[in-house]
Simulated assay, not measured.
Amino acid sequence: MAAEIRALRHTGATALVVDIGNDSGGDDSGDWTPRLFTNRPVRSARLLMADASDAGRYFADEIRDINEALAATQSHDARAALKDARSFFYQQTAAIGEHRCDLSWVWREQRAWSPTNCNRLLSAGYAGGYSPGLARSALGDSKAAAALSSASTVQSFFGSWTGPTYVLADQRSYSSAEMFAAVMQDNRIAKLVGNRTGGD
């Protein structure tokens, strides 16, 4: 995508339209790619997980990646940030099972959603990991940055385009495509046009 952006810029393009219509989604690229369209900081969406054993597996994976990055880095700043992240995921692991409450009402009635009411959810950081996002070359250690925010794996492509951008969506845009649209909109990187997405 970065190569396509460079090619369009070379031909004199003054605006980009990214068509995610009829796109069923895919992987975490929906969180990574918005950073190609701006040189400003980009925040990933908050991630919440059901208070269940699956959350423990996710937290264990995050801790494993953080430990690998800790073993490889010599940067004082990176080590401090990684230790904070590891502490957070240890705390969240210990909290599994503490957010139980009666939600049987959901089968009988509709209520307005409130994140402060009991919802059996645990904070899991952000869509890309512990950090909402890091600047290019943050912490001076790319492996540590990627362990804290997976979008940092494409940091060499951050800001490939900084001009006007539009995202074209339709009712067949799902999953990662919707994540892309949401991050682009929430961070004021692009204007969304088209129809409401599929709601995945």
Rank of each mutant, 00 (worst) to 15 (best):
A95G: 00
S114Q: 10
W105K: 10
S87I: 14
A94F: 14
D102L: 08
S87C: 08
D77G: 02
E109G: 02
H99C: 00
F88G: 12
D102M: 05
T73G: 00
T93S: 15
G97D: 04
F89W: 11
L103G: 13
Q91N: 13
E98C: 07
W113Q: 08
T93L: 15
W107S: 13
A112R: 08
R108F: 02
D84H: 04
S87L: 13
Q91K: 14
R111H: 07
A112H: 09
A81K: 03
S75F: 04
T73S: 04
Q74M: 09
T116N: 09
A78Q: 03
Q91S: 15
D77T: 09
A85N: 03
D102H: 05
D77W: 00
A80M: 06
Q74R: 13
R108Q: 12
R86Y: 07
A94S: 11
W107G: 12
L82N: 01
S87N: 07
A95L: 06
S75H: 05
T116A: 12
S114E: 10
W105L: 02
H76T: 15
G97I: 04
Y90I: 13
A85T: 06
A112Q: 08
S87F: 11
R100D: 11
V106D: 01
S104I: 11
L82H: 01
S104T: 15
W107I: 08
Q91H: 13
D84E: 14
D84T: 10
R79S: 13
K83S: 11
S75P: 04
N117H: 12
E109D: 13
N117W: 05
Q74Y: 02
T93G: 07
A95F: 06
S75I: 04
